[in-house]
Design a protein around this nucleic acid. Structure first.
Lengths: 202, 202
DNA sequence: GTCTATACCTAGATAGAC
DNA sequence: GTCTATCTAGGTATAGAC
């Protein structure tokens, strides 16, 4: 209940954001939204044309929040590798999953260009942002020269999104962390000497 | 419609498998299952106690299928790296997503230990299987000696599961392939000489 | 075993009073 | 703006005929 000094449309949007995160679009009913927002039917249909429009407002806000959170880390201090590591290791509600990524498993969201757009834009922005950081690191010699920024960026975002899947399947955050550690070990800058592996014949 | 020489329970399970893949558990109604299976209400409740039991049968079968498909590649011919690559590059219905992984975004599946169990077991088995292959490759010197099999396995599975998310968000398989290429470039065996990067100071 | 009929609840939206 | 009917359709399950 967001009953303190918050407008009704605001409470509706926040309630929708929570429910979309918890139950997805098909699993969220107007009735559940109204109960959580402490509003009646009339209010909702006065401010919004229906469930899709309300969901769109909620998704857009969540998308914006995710960008801001990511930018705070990726545009922060530290070397490119450190910023990627900070992004991967930053605190997350792992078992709740990604409030934007999870919508891609929602048939009604994917079927609607309007609802899918903010999801697509967010993940696309994130990939581009990470690609720039990786390219910067590669130019500095922090990453192997053969790596491609866009490819590595896609791998990073996928590892996070897939980490949520593993964690929710097992009911534990461990698998998420394990996957992230694996990726970081693959990305880790080569130390000055001695660990360039001696290749053996195939 | 699976009307040719197939028992009714069989048709019900197959219809449920399809619908769970397309629409998830909360998005799949008994009515839709019956229509696709070409059966009536009575048939379904004669053979199954209800939607959860039918879904469980469907999920178990899909899980078994996934294991068999993965084992065919991971237990096949080729070096460990080649088998991992074959797993990552094998043909997939990328835009349909993973029929097992997607269930982790379903609130009713995650809330039920019974329904979640086969999902968890499948992804867990896959990680262990991949970990063994990676360990084998590391012992052969195909992968860097510092890598951890279980970590890399989690990264591989997460990249695939997350690749589905990226693909479905954009409505294109490109992002999946890009993420896989990035991961393969990170995993690639070091070539005999010349590309051990000259490290620069941090 | 399979069908139809029936039941009750919820989803999603509209109408009109206040 | 918000509320309480009201409405039609669908979700989920049971009962009982065939």
């Amino acid at each position: 209940m967001y009953s303190v000094c918050v407008s009704t449309p605001e409470r509706l949007i926040e309630a929708t954001r929570e429910l979309l995160w918890e139950r997805g679009y098909v699993g969220t009913s107007p009735k559940a939204i109204l109960q959580r927002a402490g509003a009646g039917q009339g209010s909702m249909y006065h401010h919004f044309t229906g469930k899709p429009e309300l969901a769109l407002a909620a998704i857009r806000r969540t998308a914006e929040e995710i960008r801001a959170t990511a930018e705070a880390v990726l545009g922060g201090p530290g070397s490119p590798y450190e910023r990627v590591e900070a992004y991967l290791r930053r605190e997350r509600d792992v078992l709740r999953g990604c409030p934007v990524g999870r919508l891609t498993m929602d048939p009604d969201v994917v079927a609607s260009d309007e609802l899918r757009a903010p999801v697509d834009e967010t993940l696309d922005w994130l990939r581009e942002r990470l690609a720039a950081v990786v390219e910067e690191g590669r130019e500095r010699g922090e990453f192997a020269p053969g790596l491609d920024g866009e490819e590595i960026a896609a791998t990073i975002v996928a590892t996070v999104q897939g980490g949520y899947v593993l964690a929710r399947a097992s009911g534990s955050t461990a698998a998420f962390d394990t996957g992230v550690r694996g990726l970081l070990s693959l990305l880790a800058p080569r130390s000055p000497a001695g660990d360039c592996p001696t290749p053996t014949k195939a």
